[in-house]
Design a protein around this nucleic acid. Structure first.
Length: 403
RNA sequence: GUGGGAUUAGCUCAGUUGGUUAGAGCACUGGUUUGUGGUGCCGGGGGUCGCGGGUUCGAAUCCCGUAUCCCACCCCA
């Protein structure tokens, strides 16, 4: 038997119900905030991710499905959604057009990792990207939008917040952090020694307890922000306070992708195991420029749909539609015709076999229909049908033509 | 990529120190005097015990390998 590849799942039945339930809510929220759908290719040139996500990141460094296609192009399956949207934004010359452009998307992402609960090799993200707004109000709006989606899905969360600084204050901070790391270099783990040169900020994120203890005394970026970053961060906190969005400041929150600056946030859940990040995002003002576009401020976030699906509280399944059953062989053709007509406007479940009352009502119950109709010699003679409401148990008899 | 635990029917799981033809519940299917309420009762189908080797008179059971899932690390959404 041929099985699906490791870390690749089929989505059907109840999972699919949850999947579409989420997509519908997220789409509705995004549209209420004025965002427009964008679809970008699953396959992109590898260089796009190397330049945006960053070669020092694990995503690009070891998790990409990368190969050479028949035209000798170095391509890969997208590991995340932002890079493709930014590429499209620039390619369509929207950077030169100016103004504000807001997009949302959802689709498959691919990362060659060891699968675990909440971590698949092909997984789905819902994300939004906003271009052309440098105001911190947009950052706050992103967070409120994520919170709205989670709230409407009945999902509890903790929001973690940090500021990563910008090109004014980050380099200075980076230098001071490097000197601090050098001062404790003998005591930190191997990974951190490596991070010192590849991406020093990431050491703050190290899960090693010994390292964490040492970094307690490390300089904090939050204390080294320049005036602009500082006032934006203060403003962001105020907006969230005003709108009753609870948050925690996590000075060690470092996004795994290199392109973030200033606002960084992550929504985590305590109910789905170790893969607890359910949404994450932040500002990336330099990315458009970095991918050869005209400098354009931008901010966005993405949500992990499979992780959210574990947490979504689904509404009760309501009875819906009609079940029509035939009492005898002669009535089956009529059942088919009635169903065909009614299906233009309603859900109709039928059984192709003649059965007795008890078996049909079992079928109606299984199909969870609201109405129940039996067709037999009585109906054919009288030209009427009796519709039973299975919820309140009332009946109504109609002329068959009026059904 | 590292360490640990699992894998038996469609699903959830039993299965004794290695010993006849591998079980249960749910699900599926048929019947239960062929026209009014589901639950009851009686039957039926369905398993190469993840896969491949090995030990043994004999393996679901012991050993080795491998695959997948789960947990932790790591990483991230």
């Amino acid at each position: 038997m041929i099985k699906s590849l490791r870390g690749m799942n089929d989505i059907l039945s109840e999972d699919y119900e949850r999947f579409t339930y989420f997509i519908n809510i997220a789409t509705d929220v995004a549209q209420k905030y004025g965002f427009h759908f964008i679809e970008t290719p699953l396959l992109e040139e590898t260089a796009l991710f190397k330049r945006s996500v960053g070669e020092s990141s694990d995503i690009v460094g070891k998790e990409m499905y990368q190969f050479t296609d028949k035209g000798e192009n170095d391509v890969c399956l997208r590991p995340e959604g932002t890079a493709g949207v930014v590429r499209a934004f620039i390619e369509k010359k929207l950077d030169k057009a100016g103004g504000i452009h807001r997009f949302f998307y959802h689709g498959s992402m691919f990362r060659y990792e060891r699968p675990q609960k909440g971590r698949l090799r092909q997984f789905h993200q819902f994300g939004v990207e906003s271009f052309g707004v440098d105001s911190v109000y947009e950052d706050a709006t992103m967070i409120m939008m994520s919170a709205d989606i989670l709230k409407r899905c009945g999902i509890g969360y903790r929001l973690q917040l940090n500021s990563l600084g910008d090109s004014n204050c980050m380099p200075q901070y980076r230098d001071s952090l490097i000197s601090y790391i050098e001062s404790v270099e003998d005591e930190i783990c191997e990974d951190c020694v490596r991070r010192k040169t590849t991406n020093p900020i990431r050491v703050l994120d190290c899960k090693n307890e010994k390292c964490q203890a040492l970094y307690e005394k490390a300089p904090k970026l939050i204390n080294s922000l320049c005036d602009s970053c500082e006032s934006d961060f203060t403003k962001l906190k105020k907006i969230l306070d005003d709108n009753e969005i609870a948050y925690e400041i996590d000075t060690n929150l470092v996004r795994g992708l290199d392109y973030y600056s200033k606002t960084a946030f992550e929504f985590v859940s305590d109910n789905i195991g170790s893969q607890s990040a359910i949404a994450g995002g932040g500002r990336y003002d330099k990315l458009v420029e970095f991918l050869d576009g005209r400098p354009t401020p931008a901010v966005g976030f993405a949500m992990g749909i499979e992780r959210l699906m574990e947490l979504i509280v689904m509404p009760e399944n309501k009875r819906d539609g009609y079940y029509i059953g035939a009492m005898d062989e002669e009535s089956i053709d009529l059942v088919i015709s009635l169903a065909q007509r009614k299906r233009q406007t309603d859900k109709v479940i039928i059984d192709y076999k003649a059965k007795n009352f008890k078996n049909h009502i079992k079928g109606a119950d299984k199909a969870n229909t609201k109405y129940f109709i039996l067709i037999g010699s009585n109906e054919i003679e009288s030209g009427t049908i009796t519709i039973k409401n299975l919820e309140d148990k009332t009946e109504q008899t109609l002329n068959m033509k009026d059904f």
